[in-house]
Design a protein around this nucleic acid. Structure first.
Length: 576
RNA sequence: CGGCCCGUAGCUCAGCUGGCAGAGCAGCUGACUCUUAAUCAGCGGGUCGAGGGUUCGAGUCCCUCCGGGCCGACCA
């Protein structure tokens, strides 16, 4: 702590902290501060005619100050927004003692500090609704300067846009970029909107294990961890599907979970190692029913959050009004390539891939090849919401065989803006078939597919007791939020996106005695440290004693330390 | 993993073919009792991401590394 190098502004704020305490003001008081209004209520509802809000109390952060001698304006930001506040010396300090205004407000408070105010609302000559402060309380002193963002006619000046700062220090982003708070409020409302719908249908919100002995329900590489007292490996879940279906076996009509899943894979604009998925399973339904339900969910969310089903994403207008287009995967490939691949074998598909310039290798089976063709040739066309239906069996090991199309399964994925938003099946409930599919996965795994599914024999055991015909659907909440809130990157809809750790500069410094032992005069130790020689080993590594002597003498002169100059020879002796 | 770009004061950013590190905001001192990107006068503030190299001299050129962004690869 004492060794921390503080900027000038941080030092000044820490001094202010001490000064406040000397005046008997606790900069971090414990007591509840009872407010009776939010900034937004005042801004929306105050009128001079009504003369309302004449005894208000609110609390928030000082975001700007304009001091004009014995009167000042400032902006206070609470959770609802910003409001201008007005201080007048003789109102703050009615008696002889003007300390609270002259010293505390003008000198010891800063932008970023959190205060509570009591006063009345009025309109200034410029017409701005303002709280005239009669009394203020320091609630929390800020000792780190906040980026100052100014705004005029909706244009921001010096806005914090650096992604690294925004994501690493999300708290700063939230303070200075109000629209960011709005995105996260909307994220929560999206989840609430869906939850309302599910609860109104009587479906049960449940929680299932995040630490799983077998990471099932999806094709992905898991994170692995270890349980000490059981002495077994455990995996962070890649999906919760198999647990939710066990609950349908258990007799619930419908179950759903908003779940964090974890996948140990690359990160980019649309992938974060941990992400949120809503999965829902409903007994006695099939994937056709689920498509209609998915349309209902999406359009309700759009209405609840944006008030309309037509949304704008970047330069595109997307219409979320049902019904959405439904097309089979094979028909979509036909539409986009003109190729009919339905009856092709693995070798023929591989040739198609080669012809189309699609990367493929021997570990890829028929299903993966079809999937690769689809991804390459079709996905980018799916801007308006589209259900792609009837997937190859091989890549859908938990899905019921198609009731009429051999080799295919009753599965759909919903694409919006070329991204997969939802994935759903008529769930496979034939335990014998399920066991065979798991064994197929095992063979793929042996072929080198490192994301083929593990066999979960307890899940098969559950199916053996009998699971009703069921349809299940998973929806990527992060991607849905990106879409609804028009955010280009997943990091913009995650409060704390994963980042590489910041490298902490080592704060290790050598002691005074170590410098003295080298023959460095005591008065030159601080200049040495200031020039970056914070340890004696750094000093020893220096080879240019002449340059060092020169730098030290320069530092002496620049900072007017008045020390006697050093000769290169004297410095040379330290380094031996 | 590969290509391109970025990292300079608390914040936003200049800094040309290498030649004394700059501006605005913020801060400090002062003036100003309805201002609003307040204004006016003055002042301070830098390990130029880190390390190495070339050079009389590096923010600038070269190499390595760290962090970030975009695109691609891999991947849902």
């Amino acid at each position: 702590m004492s060794n921390m190098i503080l900027s000038e502004q941080e030092q000044i704020r820490r001094n202010s902290l001490d000064e406040l305490r000397k005046l008997g003001i606790n900069p971090y008081p414990a007591a509840e501060y009872k407010t009776n209004v939010f900034a937004q209520d005042i801004l929306e509802n105050y009128t001079p005619e009504k003369n309302n809000f004449q005894d208000v109390c609110l609390a928030g952060r000082i975001m700007s100050r304009r001091i004009m001698g014995n009167a000042s304006f400032a902006e206070l930001m609470d959770s609802s927004g910003r409001i201008q506040i007005y201080f007048r010396r003789d109102d703050i300090c009615p008696g002889e003692d003007k300390t609270m205004y002259n010293t505390v407000f003008k000198h010891l408070l800063d932008i970023g500090d959190i205060i509570g105010i009591k006063g009345f609302v009025f309109k200034t000559q410029m017409g701005e609704t303002t709280v005239h402060v009669k009394e203020f309380t320091v609630l929390s002193k800020s000792i780190r300067p906040l980026p100052v963002v100014k705004e005029k006619d909706g244009i921001l000046f010096d806005a914090v846009t650096d992604p690294e700062m925004r994501y690493r220090q999300r708290y700063v982003d939230l303070i200075v970029n109000p629209h960011v708070r709005d995105v996260f409020r909307k994220r929560t409302r999206i989840i609430q909107s869906m939850r309302e719908l599910f609860n109104s249908r009587g479906y049960l919100e449940v929680e299932t294990p995040i630490l799983q002995p077998i990471p099932g329900g999806a094709s992905a590489r898991p994170f692995i961890t270890h349980h000490n007292s059981l002495d077994i490996p455990l995996y962070l879940r890649i999906a919760n599907e198999l647990y939710l279906k066990r609950l349908i076996v258990g007799g619930f009509e419908g179950v759903y979970e908003f779940a964090k899943d974890f996948r140990n894979e690359g990160m980019d604009r649309i992938h974060n190692p941990e992400f949120t998925v809503m999965e829902i399973y409903i007994a006695f339904k099939d994937y056709n029913w689920m498509m209609t339900f998915t349309e209902e969910i999406i359009s309700k969310v759009a209405m609840d959050i944006q008030g309309k089903t037509e949304i704008v994403f970047e330069d595109k207008v997307i219409n979320l009004n049902p019904p959405f287009k439904r097309i089979s995967m094979l028909d979509s490939i036909k539409e986009n390539t003109g190729l009919v691949i339905a009856s092709m074998n693995e070798e023929e598909l591989r040739n198609v891939c080669k012809k189309l310039g699609i990367a493929n290798d021997q570990t890829m089976g028929k299903g993966k090849l079809v999937d690769a063709i689809f991804s390459e040739k079709c996905e980018h066309t799916l801007i308006q919401p589209t259900f792609i239906i009837d997937y190859p069996t091989e890549t859908s090991p938990l899905t019921k065989m198609h009731r009429s199309k051999p080799g295919l399964t009753e599965r759909f994925e919903l694409f919006i803006n070329c991204k997969e938003i939802a994935n759903a099946y008529s769930e496979l409930n034939d335990p014998v078939d399920q066991m065979e599919r798991f064994q197929d996965q095992l063979r793929l795994s042996e072929k080198g597919d490192d994301e083929a599914m593990f066999i979960d024999s307890d899940f098969v055991r559950a199916l053996e007791y009998g699971m009703p015909p069921t349809s299940g659907m998973g929806m990527g909440i992060d991607r849905l939020t990106m879409l609804i809130t028009n955010q280009p990157s997943i990091q913009d809809v995650l409060l704390f996106p994963q980042m590489k750790p910041e490298t902490q500069k080592s704060k290790v410094e050598s002691q005074k005695e170590e410098y003295l032992a080298l023959g460095v005069p005591e008065e030159w130790i601080e200049p040495l440290k200031s020039l970056g020689f914070t340890t004696v080993s750094k000093l020893r590594e220096t080879e240019k004693s002449g340059k060092l002597a020169n730098d030290l003498n320069g530092y002496n002169k620049k900072n007017k330390l008045g020390l006697t100059g050093l000769s290169p020879e004297a410095v040379q002796k330290w380094l031996i």
